[in-house]
Design a protein around this nucleic acid. Sequence first.
DNA 1: GTTGAAATTAGTACGAA
DNA 2: TTCGTACTAATTTCAAC
Lengths: 249, 249
Amino acid sequence: MTEMSRNSTQEGGQPGRIGIGLELDATHLKILEVLRENGRISVAALAERVGISRANAYTRFEALRADGAIKRFTAEIDHVRAGLGITALIFVTVRQQMWRQFRAQLAQMPEVEYCAITTGQHDAMIQVRVTDVAAVHTMVTDRLANIPAVKATETVFILDEVLRRPYVLPSDRGAGRSSRRPPADPAAGSARSTGPAGSAGPAGAAGPAGSTGSAGSAGSAGSVGAEVPLGMMRFVGAAEGRAQLQQDV
Amino acid sequence: MTEMSRNSTQEGGQPGRIGIGLELDATHLKILEVLRENGRISVAALAERVGISRANAYTRFEALRADGAIKRFTAEIDHVRAGLGITALIFVTVRQQMWRQFRAQLAQMPEVEYCAITTGQHDAMIQVRVTDVAAVHTMVTDRLANIPAVKATETVFILDEVLRRPYVLPSDRGAGRSSRRPPADPAAGSARSTGPAGSAGPAGAAGPAGSTGSAGSAGSAGSVGAEVPLGMMRFVGAAEGRAQLQQDV
DNA sequence: GTTGAAATTAGTACGAA
DNA sequence: TTCGTACTAATTTCAAC
């Protein structure tokens, strides 16, 4: 509940840009779909695959880039081939009000590929790629341990990466929307999470969903029973005082 | 120790290709470095930035692609702009010998962006992107719960994504290699993990490390103390019988 | 592994539907 | 808005060094 209006105004854009974002129609999504599979495709070929003229493709392509919907283009590489065969996840508990420092230290660690702030038992998850198991150990006990902001860590190794999609698109839904959507029993403290899930970072999405319906149904469909409906499902909310973290980060 | 020789022979390549992989020299890494930041750069411009001739750049570029070091090119998009503002991590405990089924089901779930098999308390971690919190709930209780292979789940929400590098390169090290590398105390049951960390999927890297030294030290430097060296560090090994999982997956 | 020239393709700008 | 065409600039390919 700290900053709900995060993406209803400009936020990540350069000064002067209209941060409200363009409405993505079906054609835009189609373009993204193609670009996700082949980021190096020429705009001419892109136009053909999407079924629009070249001029139109250039316009939309540029619009997506300018709007920030496309953040950048990148090459996906094989980490093993590149010599980084070990991947690990390190779950970090961060000392409150030291997030700024934690983030600064992260930037100094080139082996960190991904870092996300999470709800649940830990505060953050970082993914590292290194040459060998020993490097993980060095990283955790030697580097992370020396950061005052880090209170505790928990490390697991990644044995295999089963699936990696460049990113998910709203248009992907419909393919796997298997069984019926349950009638949605009313208010029940949506996901038991202590609020943050709906108020923090990437949340507050509903914004520019365009043609892809269903956005905005958040308030009407939450239905995580009070004490875990099915057998072994657990939704883990934020730890104590997490709200403060958002400010620092 | 199940299949250490994983990438010393061909493995991911098409039939007929020399799967041994090309040795990556400093120039190759430089190319990857540029491509990571700008996947749409022309080969001509790439050549200039790397400091080699056009023809050379084309040759190396093609070699990296053919070898599989570059898996594909993709566009990075802003999930919030695309209408998927909620990101969650679901940790899954999988019923043994049902991994094949689990993987098949995963392919049916378009909202899954990433799935990795891990050591530790759970067996897999999947990352999903959806429009609202309710969709996470639906996904977990309705879709995942209906997969017999899924024994239990634990869900956390991602509040913010602090850092996302397209990928990490061996050449990145050296920038953050802060303090001294510890003398590496000898055998100590490397990471306490029941073997898998060194034998499974992405492990067994040592292969084509090329100019970047230190690969291959895995066997000699493992040093995760028996019972957690510093204060609150935890290395979480594999659950019981994890070895079997590798076969199925 | 490099340079240079030819052929192709990409990117831009315009008017018309 | 979107399309189609013509123009300009760049990239890729292929040759010889």
